[in-house]
């Protein structure tokens, strides 16, 4: 026996609630799954990471997953993004587009298991994305004053954002009974709109569990937990612990959201049954659709990436005396 799950027309940040609803069906499945992709026309990196995480869960229960009705264009794209690894194709023949060489193809769905892999993954992914920008030469001579190339300046905010999100996901998400949580990441540069989109999804404890007991979280609801996590200087472990292990400043996620906004882009955050969009669309996901973990979609406008100015992005430190520092 198999259950059939119909994929929506759009599997993306703009219809994240629908994507989560379908993923919840995959996660709840107790028998083999047939994904009906007849309606599917578009998926973005957030949708790809959500689907990748949900399929990983199904495979971990030894369920067989088939997909039917996949159109040639979206099928070829999703296959190149490595979304359907282990999935059987039925009544669909995705075109096997020629794979690019590995160094240029790491926008594909990638699962990150260990914090020690984060720096390397973030760098490779950022370089792969910027490497697709037309007219940018990674080998041009660096600026004499700064020592950096334009390529370096474009890579930095993407790599910065990925580092913060991936390390957060692999530390905060693994609290409680979620020690084996993973994180999935995918990205793409859209040439026509000159926009970079990233998706980072984990299947960990989610913001509500992570911030449980935090005095800033006044209502124990997923949306309140997302909004609380976005407040500067709010973290579940801002002070040194009993064992003096690592601490958090509660600024990383906030800064990443501000980088996206600063470039003229936006961010969408999903956790539990709540969704927050920096464009102002916040609220609950459709009834019954819950994401166990955190999923983040980021959008950057290419033209603004190299102008990232951290003095404008970091939270204000009003009322705090300036600390004399020894710069040379």
């Amino acid at each position: 026996m198999a259950i059939t799950i119909i994929l929506p027309k759009y599997f993306s940040a703009t219809s994240a609630g629908n994507a989560v609803r379908v993923c919840k069906k995959i996660l709840d499945a107790e028998e083999d799954i047939t994904l009906d992709a007849s309606n599917l026309v578009y998926a973005d990196p957030l949708g790809i990471t959500l689907l990748g995480a949900a399929l990983h869960d199904a495979f971990s229960w030894n369920l067989r997953v088939r997909i039917s009705g996949l159109g040639e264009d979206v099928g070829g794209y999703l296959q190149r993004m490595d979304v359907f690894h282990g999935v059987d194709f039925v009544k669909c023949e995705p075109v096997k587009k020629r794979r690019r060489n590995r160094g240029d193809s790491l926008v594909e769905l990638t699962r990150v298991d260990e914090v020690s892999d984060v720096d390397e993954t973030a760098h490779r992914l950022a370089v792969a994305i910027v490497g697709r920008f037309p007219g940018i030469d990674p080998d041009e001579p660096p600026d004499e004053m700064s020592g950096y190339t334009v390529f370096d300046r474009l890579v930095e905010p993407i790599q910065y954002s990925l580092c913060e999100l991936l390390e957060n996901a692999l530390t905060h998400a693994r609290r409680g009974s979620h020690g084996s949580a993973f994180v999935w990441v995918a990205g793409q540069y859209y040439r026509s709109s000159k926009i970079v989109r990233l998706g980072v999804t984990d299947n960990g404890c989610g913001f509500l569990a992570s911030l449980k007991g935090h005095p800033e979280l006044r209502r124990k609801r997923h949306l309140d937990a997302i909004l609380t996590a976005l407040k500067p200087r709010v973290s579940c472990n801002r002070d040194l612990g009993i064992h003096d292990d690592s601490v958090n400043q509660g600024v990383g996620l906030t800064t990443v959201m501000r980088i996206a906004k600063h470039t003229g882009g936006r961010a969408v955050i999903l956790s539990g049954n709540a969704l927050h969009d920096t464009d102002g669309r916040s609220g609950s996901t459709p009834a019954g659709s819950i994401w166990q973990g955190v999923a983040v979609a980021l959008e950057f406008r290419r033209d603004q990436l190299a102008r990232t100015n951290f003095r404008e992005l970091l939270p204000l430190v009003e009322g705090i005396p300036r600390i004399p520092l020894r710069f040379e």
């Binding site: 914090v115 020690s116 984060v118 720096d119 390397e120 973030a122 760098h123 950022a126 370089v127 950096y148 370096d152 890579v155 930095e156 790599q159 910065y160 580092c163 913060e164 390390e167 530390t171 690592s246």
Partner: peptide, 13 residues
Amino acid sequence: AKGHLAGTRAAAA
């Protein structure tokens, strides 16, 4: 650093 960016807490420790 990876490339020009020193990123994670794990790398800083």
